[in-house]
Design a protein around this nucleic acid. Sequence first.
DNA 1: CTTGTATATAATTAGATCGTTATATAACAT
DNA 2: ATGTTATATAACGATCTAATTATATACAAG
Lengths: 112, 112
Amino acid sequence: MQTLDAAFSALADPTRRAILARLTQGEATVLDLAKPFDMTQPAISRHLKVLETAGLITRRIEGTKRPCSLAPSAISEIDRWLDMLRQALERNYDRLDTVLAEMKENEEGTKT
Amino acid sequence: MQTLDAAFSALADPTRRAILARLTQGEATVLDLAKPFDMTQPAISRHLKVLETAGLITRRIEGTKRPCSLAPSAISEIDRWLDMLRQALERNYDRLDTVLAEMKENEEGTKT
DNA sequence: CTTGTATATAATTAGATCGTTATATAACAT
DNA sequence: ATGTTATATAACGATCTAATTATATACAAG
């Protein structure tokens, strides 16, 4: 899915993750978001566009400002995809548990 | 964190996600993994290296084969990070609920 | 209507990424 | 030893990314 492409690659950049982290505190304008970074405003604008295209943020229009906030849609798609991996890992883990349990049983058996 | 950089950017590629999906079915060799793709073996080897570096897979050595399997570590780091966003979104959602509830209350109040 | 503020867009450049082909390594089978 | 199989690595070209500077748009304030 190309949504996942966009979402994951948006999340791959530390600046963009920092922006999202900042947005967990609530809405912020472009300049607000740019402030903490040693980076020009156009650079931040591009990052925001990437995040928006990926469905990770939305923007309101308020006069000359464009306050950004977190959007839920892309996250939930990512979650759905990761669930597949999580479940597989859980299955493997259960299997490992079984193996370990069997090993222990055998050991006990051998001991006496 | 650079683990997150590597993990998210590894997941950004559809071929690599397909490889991971395949690995949810269990261990597979490089050639096994290459088969479904219209792509040369070296290309797949590189993808596997990316996944391994990102901590998403591990490889055993078995004679001349290198069977790959899913690794849990990177996933759990991703999960921890995404939790931050999830929680923020949940808070926003709750707040929205409150707002809607208040709107409804006001409406009721105005009606009579 | 002019000035300043908030943001977006375009052109450019440097570096990363993804694929290819050709080749190396290393184990296994004869 | 020799050929074959499984995989890795190197060199290369095409495309993408992320930053910069310069400039455009558009609202808001005097």
